[in-house]
Design a protein around this nucleic acid. Sequence first.
DNA 1: GTGTTCTGTCATAAAAATGTGACATCCCTG
DNA 2: CAGGGATGTCACATTTTTATGACAGAACAC
Lengths: 226, 226
Amino acid sequence: MRVAGILLVEDDPSVRTALELALTRQGHSVTSYATGEEALDHIRSRRPEIAILDVMLPGIDGVEVCRRIRRLDQLPVILLTARGDDLDVVVGLEAGADDYVVKPVEPRVLDARIRAILRRAESASSDRISFGDLMIDRGALKVTLANKEIHLTPTELRLLLELVRHPGQVLNRRYLLRVVWDHTHVADSRLVDACVQRVRAKIEPRPAEPVFIHTVRGFGYRFSPP
Amino acid sequence: MRVAGILLVEDDPSVRTALELALTRQGHSVTSYATGEEALDHIRSRRPEIAILDVMLPGIDGVEVCRRIRRLDQLPVILLTARGDDLDVVVGLEAGADDYVVKPVEPRVLDARIRAILRRAESASSDRISFGDLMIDRGALKVTLANKEIHLTPTELRLLLELVRHPGQVLNRRYLLRVVWDHTHVADSRLVDACVQRVRAKIEPRPAEPVFIHTVRGFGYRFSPP
DNA sequence: GTGTTCTGTCATAAAAATGTGACATCCCTG
DNA sequence: CAGGGATGTCACATTTTTATGACAGAACAC
């Protein structure tokens, strides 16, 4: 279970490897770099969800990397500091860091911080709702599956949103036709079915055995997360 | 974790209690009143960060409360309306409301709106904002791309600012027409499209494959930085 | 007033979404 | 297991939506 795409910047190879291993074990997907320059170079293409930066780095230091990330993006940042480093917390906060962690850090603690920040970042953004791998952002009108954006057409999206608005409820075809389409449509057609199939083809890992949109024979369809 | 001090005005006790509970759960601190008079009496001493007003209130209605709040303060206001008409929306916007929510409302949606508005209020206090190469100076009303100044006409600038005020959110044409232009009645027009094209021509490196202003077919446009 | 910039509208082109129906397949019932 | 109704699948013509560029009137500055 992938939890988050993490960008890790740490120059000490042993610490880097250890953190990478620990975070991977927790289910995250980690990309790591030894220097801030490399990280900044790749940040756009990797699109991580959170960055963990050591403060003491050769070249550009962690605080500066944080500042530059913030200039690009709303990406959450955790700064790592060695115990005893005379870190100016204020400077870090001004640079836009979301949290501080003092090394050596227990993996489970770091993981908890990561999850807390992601949760905060998620709920702070628009109204999103997730069901396992499937995330639906009602403000951005975006649907992602395992962090990959899925393109849904307007009708498909309206249908999915309608189903999702009533999780666990069976919605019949007549209702869906009325709400998702206009009442101008004939009651009997394969229209709803066809649209459900199209949505399934896009969001179901195995459309033949759907885990999100279930057929309820004789009645309609039900959205219920796995 | 306290997120925001909320002033809630809602006359229906059951709705009031429910919202109060939900918002408290989301981490907000809520003070609620049944009438606009009470709320206005206490607004100075309580110093809330945002007000949520039901439109239908005995005595002074929500829109009027909003208007009076605005006379005192920059306090952000969300109006709650029963599922209903557009007429209210126009009047409410004129009264200075920041957002509308139609009852019944899902707590997570309301929470997201609250956070969005607070964030907006916060980011509005800073004059400059950058998205990658694109920098927008709201104080000087200047836009630069890779440090080169871009000339935008007044309408183009208002459109861009409106999109930028809601980063990541899809804004539909009707809304944009209402806010950027004054068209409250014109339902169908390609005006927004044309203006979007003009802005794209100026700020997008390759207007045919925009990285800032994205078309969301069937819904509207979304500003999301690269 | 004159020239310039800005705006809204339109025609047309291009792209995308949608509805339809024929047929396949599934699943319940007897 | 056979029959029949319900649902799944698919191709494709049609419709809808958006992009684009030209243009004319409006607004504006000088």
